[in-house]
C-alpha cells in the first residue's frame, strides 16, 4: 500500500466532491494499492489539519452546517508551503482576470516539488506555459482533466488513449449552461431571457451568467485544449468569442425546419480558436441536448472520435480529479 498525503485547497462543490469520492472509493483504492490520506483542507476562510488523516465525513458535514471546514486560520497557500505532503488538489474558484488564489497556490505547490491536480481553469487559461515550466523544473506531476468538460474525458483521451494520432481539429459543446438554455429555447419556443431565468432557478446558471453565456468559459477550456493538445501557447485573448445572448427562438425554429439545431460550439485547430453559435445537423453526434457536453476530435489515423458526458457537477468533476490522482500514483 502506497500512502499519498494530500491537501484539498478550496472546499466548494468540487472540493467536497473530491472528499466524497475518496470516501466512496476506499475499497477500490485499497485494491489498487493507493491510500489517499487527506492531511489538510482549506476553504476561503478556515482550515483543518491532521497529519493522521482528516475525518472527511465530519468536515463535509461541518461545512454544510457551519459553513467552515475547521478552526485553523491557515490559508491554502500557507498549507501548501508549510505542511509536508505529496499532492495538492486545487479546487478554488476560477478567476480569469487575476488567476485568483489558484495561480499562487499552483506556483507554490511546484516550488515545493508537490504534484498538483486541479479543476481550476483560470490559471491555466492565463499562464499555461509558465505553469508547465514550473512543474517541469521541480519534477512535479501536473494534471488538469477536470478543467475541460467535467466528467467527459478530453485531455487524457487526446494525450494518452489516442497517442500516436495527430489531432487536426476539435469541435464540441463545452458549456452545459448554454446547451441547457438553447435546448430549452428550442423545445419551448421561448425567448433567451425566459430560459436563462429557468436555468438560474434550477441552479444550472449563475446569478451573473456572463461567464457562461458570453462564451468566456468555453474560451478558457479551448485555450487549455489548444495548449495541451495542439502545443500552442495561447491565452484567452487569442480566442474569437461570440456568445448566445442574441439567439432568438425564431432562429432556432428556422434552423430546425432546415434540419439543424443551434449550439454554442468551441473549435480548435492549427489556424484558429473560436467560440460561436453554429448550426449542427440534428442527426450529428455533436447534437446532444440538455446540459450535456460533447467533444469531437478529428484524428489522422482514427478519423473522428466523439465523447459526450456531464460537463459540470460536484461528483462528476471530482471523478475527473480522482482519475488524474490515480493515474499519477498507479505504478
Amino acid at each position: 500500500m502506497k500512502t499519498i498525503r494530500l491537501s484539498i485547497i478550496g472546499f466548494g462543490a468540487v472540493g467536497q466532491g473530491v472528499a466524497k469520492v475518496i470516501l466512496d472509493k476506499q475499497v477500490y483504492l485499497e485494491k489498487i494499492g493507493i491510500d489517499f490520506k487527506v492531511v489538510a483542507i482549506a476553504d476561503s476562510r478556515t482550515a483543518v489539519i491532521d497529519e493522521d488523516g482528516v475525518d472527511l465525513a465530519a468536515v463535509i458535514s461541518r461545512k454544510k452546517t457551519e459553513g467552515t471546514v475547521g478552526s485553523e486560520k491557515l490559508t491554502g497557500l500557507e498549507i501548501i508551503e508549510t505542511i509536508d505532503h505529496e499532492l495538492v488538489v486545487e479546487t478554488t474558484p476560477t478567476n480569469i482576470v487575476t488567476g485568483g488564489a489558484g495561480l499562487g497556490n499552483m506556483f507554490m505547490a511546484f516550488k515545493h516539488g508537490r504534484d498538483l491536480v486541479t479543476s481550476n481553469k483560470g490559471p491555466l487559461a492565463m499562464k499555461y506555459g509558465e505553469l508547465i515550466a514550473a512543474a517541469e523544473a521541480s519534477g512535479s506531476k501536473f494534471l488538469f482533466e477536470a478543467t475541460v468538460g467535467g466528467a467527459m474525458p478530453v485531455l487524457n483521451l487526446a494525450r494518452d488513449v489516442l497517442a500516436g494520432n495527430k489531432i487536426t481539429n476539435v469541435e464540441g459543446i463545452f458549456n452545459g449552461t448554454c446547451n441547457y438554455i438553447l435546448t430549452r429555447m428550442m423545445e419551448e419556443h421561448a425567448p433567451y431571457e425566459q430560459m436563462l431565468a429557468e436555468a438560474q432557478e434550477l441552479g444550472y446558471a449563475e446569478t451573473d451568467p456572463t461567464y457562461d453565456v458570453e462564451g468566456i468559459d468555453t474560451a478558457c477550456k479551448l485555450v487549455i485544449l489548444a495548449n495541451c493538445v495542439f502545443g500552442m501557447n495561447a491565452t484567452h485573448e487569442d480566442v474569437t468569442v461570440t456568445g448566445i445572448t442574441k439567439i432568438t427562438p425564431e432562429a432556432l425554429m428556422l434552423a430546425q425546419n432546415d434540419g439543424y439545431v443551434i449550439k454554442l460550439i468551441g473549435e480548435v485547430n492549427d489556424s484558429r480558436i473560436n467560440v460561436a453559435p453554429k448550426l449542427v445537423p440534428i442527426d450529428h453526434p455533436l447534437a446532444v441536448g440538455g446540459s450535456l457536453n460533447v467533444a469531437s476530435m478529428q484524428t489522422d489515423l482514427s478519423g473522428p472520435i466523439t465523447v459526450t458526458g456531464r460537463g459540470a457537477g460536484s461528483i462528476e468533476t471530482a471523478s475527473a480529479i480522482l482519475s488524474d490522482m490515480i493515474s499519477i500514483y498507479r505504478d
Binding site: N169, E171, T242, K246, I247, A251, A255, Y260, I262, I265, E267, N269, A276, P277, K278, L279, V280, P281, H284, L286, S296, Q298, P304
Partner: peptide, 8 residues
C-alpha cells in the same frame, strides 16, 4: 449575427 454550419 451569422450562424454557420459546424466545420465537419
Amino acid at each position: 449575427l451569422v450562424i454557420e454550419p459546424i466545420k465537419s
